[in-house]
Amino acid sequence: MIILLRHGETFWNRERRIQGHTESDLTPLGLRQAEAMARLAADLVAREGGGWRLVASPIGRAQRTAEAVARATGLTVETDARLAEVCCGEWEGRLRAEVAEIHPERFATGEWFFGAPGGETFEDVHARAASWLADLPPESERRVIAVSHGVTGRLVRGAYAGLDRHATLAQDVPQDAIYRLQNGQIDRFDCEPVEPV
């Protein structure tokens, strides 16, 4: 079983600024989302017994979210670069609207995050996601909580379920829900509502 989370809201998420590998702190709402996801993850894993690992992207927003999960579960955070967000190259730090104005053809496809000069492709990130999944224990022995990102989390779920590119990228990327990947099935669990202050 894999319990998969996206990090909580960041200041750049709120500003609609392209993050990629660049750091952006969790907002107060993002911190509360991380705590809510952590409580839900702890509840789900407690039902399954011991032997769990907690693995996160090395990027700060995922690490902060993983720290909340670690507090809730008593697990230690391991880091795996394959769970990092898609690199958006020269576009990192820029507003989406600004880049969309300059490159409307790339944004029209709905796959703009793979179009940045110096950034990663769909195939690059899919290969990372598939490699991470392939290195896990067999399904019957798998007990992993993973903290990742919007795009990479989609590709982990897509690789797990054998989805095509379109179906993979059409998936939701909530910051107030977690996914359970088990026996070829993906189930979403929504957290308790967390209101902005």
Rank of each mutant, 00 (worst) to 15 (best):
L31V: 15
I3T: 02
D176F: 07
T27Q: 10
H149F: 02
T73D: 00
V55P: 01
H149D: 07
Q19V: 06
F11N: 01
P28H: 05
R180G: 11
A70V: 07
R180C: 11
V156I: 15
R142T: 05
G110L: 08
T79L: 02
R71Q: 14
R157C: 10
V45L: 15
G158F: 00
P104E: 03
C87T: 05
D172H: 14
I145C: 09
D187I: 14
A62Q: 04
L163M: 14
C88A: 11
L40E: 10
L155M: 15
R47K: 14
A108G: 08
A108K: 05
A36H: 06
S24G: 03
I186T: 08
T22C: 01
Q185K: 13
L31C: 11
R157Y: 08
L40T: 15
E141K: 10
C191A: 08
T27R: 02
H166M: 02
T73C: 08
L155W: 07
A46M: 08
T27W: 05
Y179C: 06
E35Q: 15
C87Q: 04
G30V: 09
I18W: 02
V173M: 15
E15I: 06
D190S: 14
A161N: 04
V99S: 01
R94F: 07
E120R: 01
L40D: 05
T168P: 05
H166F: 01
V99H: 00
T168L: 04
H149Y: 07
S57L: 06
R32D: 12
D80K: 07
A177G: 11
M37L: 14
C88K: 04
P28I: 05
R32G: 09
E48A: 15
Q19H: 00
I3F: 11
N183E: 15
V45P: 00
T10H: 11
A134F: 09
I18H: 00
A72Q: 03
L29Q: 02
R82W: 09
L5C: 12
M37D: 12
P138L: 06
L181V: 10
E35P: 01
M37E: 14
I145H: 05
R64D: 10
L155P: 00
L40W: 02
F113A: 05
C88D: 00
I59H: 05
N183W: 13
L4E: 11
E85V: 01
L181N: 07
V45D: 00
T152S: 14
G158S: 04
S57E: 10
A134K: 13
R142D: 01
V86D: 00
D164N: 14
A56W: 04
L4F: 04
V144T: 15
L54K: 06
